[in-house]
Design a protein around this nucleic acid. Sequence first.
DNA 1: CTTTCTGCAAACGATTTGCAGCAGC
DNA 2: GCTGCTGCAAATCGTTTGCAGAAAG
Lengths: 156, 156
Amino acid sequence: MAADHPDAHEGAIDDLHVTVGRRLRVAGMRYSRSRYAVVEVMAGAGRPLTLPEILAVDAGRRLAQSSAYRNLGELVDVGVARRVDAGDDRSRFELHESLTGHHHHLVCDSCGRVEDFHVPDEFEKQVAALVEVAAEGGFRVDAHRFDMLGRCTECR
Amino acid sequence: MAADHPDAHEGAIDDLHVTVGRRLRVAGMRYSRSRYAVVEVMAGAGRPLTLPEILAVDAGRRLAQSSAYRNLGELVDVGVARRVDAGDDRSRFELHESLTGHHHHLVCDSCGRVEDFHVPDEFEKQVAALVEVAAEGGFRVDAHRFDMLGRCTECR
DNA sequence: CTTTCTGCAAACGATTTGCAGCAGC
DNA sequence: GCTGCTGCAAATCGTTTGCAGAAAG
């Protein structure tokens, strides 16, 4: 539902894989089937997924847990994926914002589910102002994170 | 913001301990020396601390790691402390916002250090508007989290 | 005294890593 | 063939938990 468009144009999912393949190659890595599958799953989710969730969706492929973790770590390193923290003990992963567009999250304290949430430019402008304030204090801001925590529709 | 505690008056540190003691008592718990020490350390830090940091500051008291974790968990349960997530693998703890006031964080990606950061009301108003949007979508927002990630003065 | 803490050590669970064999170019 | 990737199992590491003895009230 939240699989909106991101940057400039970017048409189909094909472009996504082309881009991912390029980023991996630049880093001297191969775009193996496992990695392709993991990217495919994240692209189709529209929200950050835990590793068990990624393995489940990709069930038919019998990808080893350790390989999935390894792949995700590498995808994060080359700027294709991002690790999302939801407060519970497990990490979640989503495609990097350079591929899906800047957004924030709604985190359910009950079930842990995380949904994407897009905010108006107005809000981001305010953030830009705060980045300035932080810079004046000697802190160089590279990114920001805004999450709203509460109860999702299922858990209310 | 945050679940308001009726006894959340801000003032001297004495008041802090009185308040903490009351909240624990209400929950049928005692304000033991260990818990007092942990609260004291957090109050003096002014930023979220990891468990090793808390134990270090409180070195002279030889508090067992497991007890510290247990105390912190309980303090979180009774609304005296809050667990802060900084992206790395360890949790950080700070006094609950009902005791210190609402604020956000600056997180250093390099050293992991987390600093408190207060934002103008203007910003919080925007957040309130977003909370409305989320509510319309069926998500009940109980709290929010805004962090700016980057390099602190030490690590630039 | 009775109930709630604490310390110690063992248990946990998510994530990481060493290694031998398989796949990609 | 090289080189990099995968599966398997063992190793990590922060955090949690079971218990018996030590405080708090």
